[in-house]
Design a protein around this nucleic acid. Structure first.
Lengths: 211, 211
DNA sequence: ACCGGGGTGTTACCTGGGGTAACATCGTCG
DNA sequence: CGACGATGTTACCCCAGGTAACACCCCGGT
């Protein structure tokens, strides 16, 4: 038979293991879960990265499509942005395993710049960039701003969403509001607090652990 | 003699190797560079993570201190934010090796949520949170907003800075402007572009709000 | 009926990295 | 001197990624 069906079965097994043990699951474990041995996995996926990549693509497709759709909703801009934020947070909330794969940069990557965002997130960043380019009038700077903002917003949501998932400090809608407010310049618009400036020395205000 | 001097020498060697081979350099390689063998490294640093952590702390101290200082500059808020952004970008620009360590989440981490930001970046996020809490009047939501924004801004700068370092699409000051503009709500304030709806949409809404 | 190819699967092995045990040495301080 | 705390070593363990060589099974072509 064509290799595709088997591949799917193997991915199912890999999926189970990864959801149980995290993205660092060993090839042996995955093979065992599939009831077979390693060489078969390597025949199908080349190497570990290939397997993880296939798994990631399979999982992130839904989230990416959802974000893309949210970016195209015919809403007021603020509502659309909130919708996108909510879509992303809902996605990572519903399936944390997906989230783990999503943010897993490059399994055993060589290093260097360019991998602060995992591939799946890079795709989301590109969607945002495209949406900004298509929807917002930014004058001559549009390309630069759209790209920088696409990456920046993606990173912002990644880091904030990660923190939210971990500590659950508030409801999802409230988190969406907080992030949308940030994007809407609330940081810039808010008033100064009166004093609260550093005393005089470069000393510590409260608890600056010097790691 | 106290262990400290030797430790420093070992860190120097590790530093050389990491800068040459990236953060995935092996303990053997580091030991060889130091002219010794593995067990000594383990005596000093416990395990690989300990070594990398020590290396990271050594390198990121400067950047963290610089960012902290920038956050406390007595400037208009916009200028202060630009100053912080510029400080960060200048830091990663000047020493990309530092940057690599900075963003290296947890060497061989177990996975899960909470490590989207590497430890060093988490410290930066905390600094931002503190600064926002101390300097900006955000009403009742201050704690939530400050924390969410601290993480969010850090992630934004991480992702955008990563892209900037990699592709160098513009000068540093221009990049700073782009990010500050984003934080200042320029995305929200800009006008809509006229049409630019998705071409592949199944059906076009008769009177889409604002697309 | 035979054979070959593409699929399935296996056992056994290599490489190399993290990490440890056991042992040997040197210098200093009581 | 002896003990301690540092230096260092060789040799080993465990396990993960990855590969070689071999075996089976089915199906379609000649």
């Amino acid at each position: 038979m064509s290799r595709e069906p088997r591949r799917e079965q193997l991915l199912n097994a890999a999926d189970r293991v990864v959801q149980r043990e995290g993205p660092s699951a060993s090839m042996n474990a995955i093979a065992a879960e599939a009831g077979i041995t390693k060489p078969i996995l390597y025949r199908h996926f080349g190497d570990r990265n290939g397997l993880i990549r296939a798994l990631t693509e399979r999982h992130t497709g839904g989230l990416l499509a959802a974000v893309r759709a949210a970016l195209a909703e015919p809403l007021e801009r603020r509502d659309r942005v909130e919708h996108v934020l909510d879509t992303y947070l809902a996605g990572i909330e519903a399936r944390p395993q997906v989230y783990r794969l999503l943010t897993h940069p490059e399994p055993g990557d060589p290093s260097g710049a360019g991998n602060a965002l995992a591939p799946a997130l890079r795709q989301i960043a590109e969607e945002i960039t495209r949406a900004v380019q298509n929807q917002v009038d930014l004058g001559a700077d549009r390309d630069l701003l759209a790209e920088a903002w696409g990456r920046g917003i993606t990173g912002m949501v990644l880091a904030a969403g990660d923190w939210w998932l971990e500590t659950r400090p508030c409801s999802r809608t409230r988190m969406v509001q907080a992030l949308a407010d940030l994007l809407w310049g609330r940081l810039a618009a808010a008033a100064d607090l009166p004093t609260a400036v550093l005393p005089a020395a470069p000393a510590e205000p409260a608890a600056p652990d010097t790691d």
